[in-house]
């Protein structure tokens, strides 16, 4: 699995939303992150996840239910706020983390 972004366009970007993957999401994505939705200043979380899922079908199959995380998964905006609401708005330059909802250790 890639530990680093695959291409220049997948690096952190001000133009677009960076989706970071953790745990099973990272395994299924086969990478640590991608950048989606370039050219948009403000966008629904659901559209960000749809865009990520369309590029990463294995991820979509296991972790996403269309435009929202499947049960057992969560999104987190900028490492600050957990959500599963596809209508939450994110901005260009934001980071969406996709991770397991179970943090048992």
């Amino acid at each position: 699995m890639d530990q680093e972004p695959r291409t220049e366009s997948d690096c952190d970007a001000k133009d677009g939303v960076t989706v970071e993957f953790f745990g099973i999401a990272r395994r299924r994505a086969g990478r640590t992150r991608i950048v989606v939705c370039p050219g948009r200043e403000s966008i629904r979380l659901g559209d960000v996840l749809l865009a990520a899922g369309s590029r990463l079908p294995d991820l979509a199959g296991e972790c996403l239910d269309g435009s929202r995380p499947k049960e057992g998964y969560l999104a987190n905006i900028n490492a600050c706020r957990f959500t599963t609401d596809p209508d939450v708005m994110v901005e260009a330059g934001d980071h969406v983390l996709l991770l397991s909802a179970d943090a048992g250790g």
Binding site: F22, G23, I24, R27, E62, E71, G72, A79, S100
Partner: peptide, 23 residues
């Protein structure tokens, strides 16, 4: 099923990188 996939495939050690990203 999927509810335990994290523990099965990665184990709880997977928390470390996630927790780090969350601060």
């Amino acid at each position: 099923g999927p509810a335990t996939a994290k523990y099965r495939e990665l184990g709880t050690v997977d928390n470390l990188v996630t927790f780090n990203r969350l601060g």
